[in-house]
Amino acid sequence: MKRYPQYFELNEKGSSILNKIKGESVPASAANLKPEEMLRYIATNIEEDMLILIKNPDTEQYDEYVLRAAVSLMPAGFNPLDKLNQPLTTIHGPVPGYVQKLQTAMNKFFTRLQAHEYYVRNNWSLQTHTNLCAPTGSHATKEESVKIHPLYPSDLDFNKCFFRVEKQCFTRLPKTGADLMFIRTYTTSLMQLREHLTHEQKEILCSAIDGLTGDLAIYKKRIQWGEAAKSFIQGESNGSQPIPKDYTFVH
């Protein structure tokens, strides 16, 4: 109500909040709501996905934070139900190199997070489908990679291929000490993106695509769309460019 008073208004009794965009009201207090009801109100009034993680000293893995509640409408490459009640390391199990490179830092970050602090990070990927809710189709395993073949630009409709960015915001709830994570997802078609990128920005994006190597190239499915996307971004969109002969990966 403070940020968007033109859209959200408290009624005279102070018992409900009117969402003027939808013409619907939600309770002003969660005191009498079941957790599922509260999550449903959040999901239908806030654009971001929301995750609540609570420290669980009884977990076997590194005294980690555990995902205890979530509103996840736009997952990319995973089923949110599979992540519920799982510690961070298990949640990130499919991510190549997580244990070796990220586990310790992630655990420290979630433990040191303080109320009224807000940390923002972004990640990106390319997807060759139109699904915002994409529990499958965005990632691949080593076993699946043997059946994946590189695509030509002519294989793809770049109006339906998207540069997908997650803006993730982290903070801690002051009363419970639970960690809160918000995720807003942005998607831009490669057709639209290419029209607005400078030559230098195109080179930066293609360099970032080249930076996805080894197991990460498999996980992100870069082995499938990488060369086709680069060819299109650089303006070689007629589909006549052959895949380089040395474009191979060791599985």
Rank of each mutant, 00 (worst) to 15 (best):
P94C: 06
A178H: 13
S25M: 04
S25E: 06
L190N: 02
D82G: 03
F162R: 05
L156Y: 04
N45A: 05
Y119H: 15
I183P: 00
G14Y: 15
K245M: 09
E36R: 15
T187G: 00
T128S: 06
T213Q: 10
A140Q: 11
K13N: 09
K20N: 07
N45Y: 08
P242A: 13
K175S: 06
I209W: 02
R164W: 12
L18G: 00
M74L: 11
T171C: 07
K175P: 00
R172A: 11
V146A: 08
L88H: 01
W124N: 08
G77N: 07
L190K: 09
R68D: 05
Y219V: 07
G97H: 09
Q103I: 02
G211E: 12
S16R: 04
F162V: 02
A178S: 14
P153V: 13
N85M: 14
A178C: 14
V95L: 14
L126R: 02
M191H: 14
F158K: 10
N19G: 04
N19I: 03
K220Y: 08
T188E: 09
K147W: 12
M1L: 14
V95M: 05
F162W: 04
E60D: 08
E227W: 12
A69W: 14
I91N: 02
N79S: 06
A69P: 00
L197K: 12
S154Y: 07
P27V: 09
G177C: 10
L212G: 01
T90W: 11
K142W: 04
L81T: 11
Q224A: 01
V66T: 14
V26T: 11
Q234V: 02
L132E: 06
F249S: 04
N131P: 00
E9L: 13
G23Y: 09
G177Y: 12
Q103E: 15
P27D: 08
T187C: 03
V165W: 03
H129Y: 14
Y247T: 07
K2G: 05
S125A: 10
E37W: 08
G226M: 10
A70Y: 00
N11I: 12
K147A: 13
D155M: 12
F8G: 01
C161L: 05
K220L: 06
V120I: 15
K108Q: 13
I223L: 11
Y186F: 13
K13C: 02
E9G: 01
K55A: 05
D179P: 00
C133R: 15
G97T: 11
H92D: 03
S15Q: 12
I54E: 10
F232W: 08
